[in-house]
Simulated scan of single mutants.
Amino acid sequence: MEYDFVPLPDRKPLKWPNDNRLAVILTINLEYWDPVQDSDKPYYPGGPGIVGGNLPGNVYDNPNFTWREYGHRVGVWRMFDLFDAEGVPASCTMNAKMALKRRPVIDAALERGWEIVPHNFVQDELLTDYMFDEKAERDVIKRTLDVYEDTIGKKPKGWLSSSLRSTLNTIDILAEEGLIFVTDLLNDDQPYLVKTRSGAPMVSISYTSEVNDFSFLRQGLTVDTGFSMFKEQFDWLYQESATSGRVMNIGLHPHVIGQPFRIRALRDFIRYAKAHDGVWFPKREEIAEWYLDNHALHIEPSGDPPIP
Rank of each mutant, 00 (worst) to 15 (best):
residue 195 K to M: 05
residue 241 S to K: 01
residue 195 K to L: 13
residue 181 F to K: 07
residue 201 P to W: 14
residue 194 V to P: 02
residue 227 F to S: 00
residue 84 D to S: 09
residue 26 L to A: 11
residue 125 E to W: 07
residue 104 P to T: 09
residue 113 G to K: 05
residue 239 Q to G: 08
residue 14 L to I: 10
residue 1 M to I: 00
residue 226 G to E: 11
residue 47 G to W: 10
residue 29 N to Y: 09
residue 75 G to P: 05
residue 135 K to W: 05
residue 266 L to W: 02
residue 304 D to C: 11
residue 71 G to E: 03
residue 133 D to F: 12
residue 11 R to V: 01
residue 259 Q to I: 02
residue 59 V to G: 11
residue 286 E to Q: 12
residue 112 R to T: 01
residue 281 F to H: 03
residue 289 E to A: 12
residue 29 N to P: 05
residue 96 A to Q: 02
residue 64 N to W: 13
residue 228 S to W: 01
residue 214 F to D: 14
residue 181 F to Y: 15
residue 40 D to N: 15
residue 193 L to C: 08
residue 221 L to T: 04
residue 201 P to D: 10
residue 3 Y to W: 15
residue 199 G to W: 04
residue 67 W to A: 14
residue 36 V to H: 02
residue 129 D to V: 02
residue 283 K to L: 03
residue 181 F to S: 03
residue 51 V to H: 06
residue 198 S to I: 11
residue 199 G to C: 08
residue 286 E to T: 13
residue 144 T to C: 14
residue 128 T to G: 04
residue 114 W to I: 06
residue 177 E to Q: 15
residue 159 W to V: 05
residue 123 Q to S: 11
residue 296 A to G: 07
residue 120 N to G: 14
residue 214 F to S: 15
residue 132 F to W: 15
residue 80 F to R: 00
residue 286 E to P: 01
residue 129 D to S: 07
residue 164 L to Q: 13
residue 169 N to F: 14
residue 161 S to L: 06
residue 112 R to K: 05
residue 298 H to L: 11
residue 269 F to G: 00
residue 135 K to Q: 12
residue 132 F to M: 09
residue 230 F to C: 00
